[in-house]
Every structure is written in structure tokens, then in C-alpha cells.
């Protein structure tokens, strides 16, 4: 179904130019936002199905699955059955779980004998702090590396940056953690090797090395996207036009190159958040931090499935919500996307 794209685009442009100016909150804009929010809800709904019903992929009865590695005493069996409503039909179990999840009730942890939400709530601050510190690091280092490389495209500085990024991209967070611990904690003794400290300042101090280890791979991601997006814009004719009009190079770079290169960078940032949350499992394990990442690993290790489910759902939600925000922000970056005209 190949439309004659020229016919259509010409007609569309003529219509657009004739039509009176639309505001950003036009009917079309509202419809777009509503559509995105609908998509967000649908994606989350499908993801929750996957998270919940994955349990049913495991052969065998659900009680013995939940009680793996624990003594299946008749009392325990009865308690678990009642608590999770395992005697109910699957869809009703799902609705109960979903209803609870929507109100922040993810059931009880088998291991801690506490509400899952309480267990997670205690661990969340460390992880959030780690993600925020890492995010700042990534933004600063990644953006500047990308910008510097792009502006020196083809010169030694660019090549050096690219080589640096390629090497960094091959340092997974567990390798980064071990190396940072070995050098800065054990050998030089500048930073602690373990734990997240007490109070805000101490926490920041404890999280310096972990946030660096976490940031490494993502710095590369942001750096490379920034560079290629900037390089692409630098080659655009509108940049040449701006130059030909006598604007200073710095002005051209700022107003036309960097500004226009923001789209892909923003998109990558959306993916970053979930990536950081997941990768924090490894860093938290390496540095002995009590965050939700290490909680996830422990829960898998100790067969505490309700906690696993809750954390997975939390990360997935974070990913979907952040991406929806990025999506919604796009018209502010690229006015063409608001009009529904295809970008580029």
C-alpha cells in the first residue's frame, strides 16, 4: 500500500499552510496525549500479565513452587494457599494480585515474613540515590564526550574519545566494581569497600565508587548517541545556511546543532533509567549495598518469588513511565512530531 507520497505530502502541506495556526494544546495534541497514555496503560497491563502468569509456565503445582526449598509442612501449605488464593481460578488470582499491586500491596515476603512493600520500601532509597548519582555522572561525562568528539570529528581528539568509549563500553559493571574496589578502596583506601553509610553525606561518599561502576557502560551509550546525532546535524544544510549568514560558530553549534541533536539523546535517556535499575543489581552485590537490586538477587537465591515479582513489575513500570514521558516531551523538541508529520 504505497501511497504516492509526493501527492499526499504536497496536499497535506498546502492544507497545513492554509489552516489557521494551531496551538500546542489543540484537539490533535490532546488526542495524541490520550493515545500515548492509552498505549502506556496497555503496555503495563500486558507486562503485568507476563509477570504474573510466568509462574504458570513452571510445571508442577503452585504451592510446591512457592515453597521450594522450604519445609512443606501442612500448616505452611495451608497458609500459602490461603494467602495467595491458590485454590482460586488463575484469572481471579491475577485480579487479586493486580488489585493489590495497584494499591501498593504486593503480598508478603516468604523470606522476611513482612509485607513485600515494606521490604522494598526500606531498600529503595539506596538504589534511587545510586541511580541519581550515576545519572548525573552519565549526563555530564557522556554529553561532554559526545560533544567534544563531534566538534573535532576526524581529528585526533575525536579518535581518542572514540577509542576511550570503545574500551569503556567493554567494562561491564562487575568488572568496573572489582577494579575500582581493588584500586581506590583496598589499595589506596580512599573509599569504603562495603555498605551505604549513615546519613546523606556519608551515603554520597559511600556511593561514589558504585555510581562510577554503574555509569561506565551508560556513559558510552550517551556519548556515542550524542556524537552521532551531533555529527548528523553538523552535516545538515541548515547549519551551512546559518553559517553563511554570519552567525558565530558557537551560536550555530548551540542553536542549530546541539538543539536539533537533542531528540535521539532524550530517547536514549528513556532507556537508561530501566537499564540503571537493572544493572544496579550487580553493583549493589559487588559493593554490598542494601538496595532493591541486591534484594532481587537475594530473593531469587532464597526462592522468594513474591518479592521478585514485585521488583520486576516496579522496574518495568519505571521503564514504561519514563519512556512515555520522553515520548510526550517530543513535540517540545521537534515540532514536526506534534503535527503528525513524519520527522526527518
Amino acid at each position: 500500500m504505497a501511497l504516492d507520497s509526493r501527492t499526499v505530502s504536497v496536499a497535506a502541506r498546502e492544507a497545513a499552510a492554509e489552516a489557521p495556526r494551531r496551538g500546542r494544546w489543540s484537539a490533535a495534541g490532546v488526542r495524541r496525549v490520550a493515545g500515548k497514555l492509552g498505549g502506556l496503560a496497555l503496555t503495563l497491563f500486558l507486562a503485568s500479565l507476563l509477570v504474573f502468569f510466568s509462574r504458570f509456565l513452571v510445571p508442577g503445582d503452585p504451592v510446591s513452587f512457592l515453597l521450594r526449598g522450604r519445609k512443606p509442612s501442612p500448616e505452611a501449605v495451608a497458609q500459602v494457599t490461603a494467602q495467595y488464593g491458590l485454590d482460586l481460578p488463575p484469572w481471579q488470582q491475577y485480579l487479586n494480585w493486580l488489585g493489590g499491586a495497584l494499591t501498593g500491596d504486593f503480598g508478603r515476603s516468604l523470606q522476611y515474613r513482612q509485607d513485600v512493600s515494606t521490604v522494598i520500601g526500606e531498600r529503595l532509597p539506596v538504589t534511587l540515590m545510586l541511580v541519581v548519582m550515576s545519572g548525573l555522572l552519565i549526563a555530564i561525562v557522556g554529553l561532554s564526550a559526545g560533544v567534544v568528539a563531534a566538534l573535532n570529528k576526524g581529528r585526533p581528539l575525536d579518535r581518542l574519545t572514540l577509542i576511550g568509549l570503545t574500551v569503556l563500553s567493554a567494562i561491564p559493571s562487575f568488572v568496573g566494581s572489582i577494579v575500582l574496589i581493588a584500586i581506590f578502596a583496598v589499595q589506596l583506601g580512599w573509599f569504603p569497600t562495603f555498605g551505604s553509610g549513615q546519613g546523606f553525606g556519608d551515603m554520597v561518599y559511600h556511593l561514589v565508587l558504585p555510581s562510577i561502576a554503574l555509569a561506565i557502560v551508560f556513559v558510552v551509550l550517551v556519548g556515542k548517541v550524542t556524537r552521532s546525532s551531533m555529527v548528523e546535524q553538523l552535516g545538515r544544510e541548515h547549519v551551512e545556511v546559518a553559517t553563511s549568514r554570519g552567525l558565530k560558530r558557537a551560536t550555530v553549534i548551540r542553536r542549530h546543532v546541539f538543539r536539533n541533536a537533542l531528540g535521539p539523546i532524550l530517547t536514549v535517556s528513556g532507556v537508561l533509567v530501566a537499564g540503571l535499575l537493572v544493572a544496579s543489581t550487580i553493583v549493589e552485590a559487588a559493593f554490598g549495598l542494601a538496595g532493591i537490586g541486591s534484594l532481587l538477587v537475594q530473593s531469587v537465591d532464597r526462592l522468594d518469588f513474591p518479592v521478585v515479582q514485585a521488583i520486576v513489575m516496579l522496574v518495568v513500570t519505571a521503564f514504561v513511565v519514563v519512556n512515555a514521558i520522553v515520548d510526550l516531551a517530543e513535540p517540545w523538541i521537534d515540532p514536526r512530531s506534534a503535527a503528525g508529520a513524519s520527522a526527518r
Binding site: 544544510e237 545556511v241 546559518a242 554570519g246 542549530h256
Partner: peptide
């Protein structure tokens, strides 16, 4: 060079769709 571009000469390019920043 900046002064010449600002006052002496100006240029019109081939493809106006590529030549004007689409985001401004």
C-alpha cells in the same frame, strides 16, 4: 569573514526544506 557574511553577500540554497532549521 563574519563581517562579509553579515553585510556584503548572502546566499540562497537549493533545497529550502533542508536549508531552514525544521525545529525553529
Amino acid at each position: 569573514i563574519l563581517d562579509l557574511r553579515r553585510h556584503a553577500a548572502a546566499m540562497i540554497f537549493q533545497d529550502p526544506r533542508a536549508g531552514i532549521n525544521p525545529m525553529r
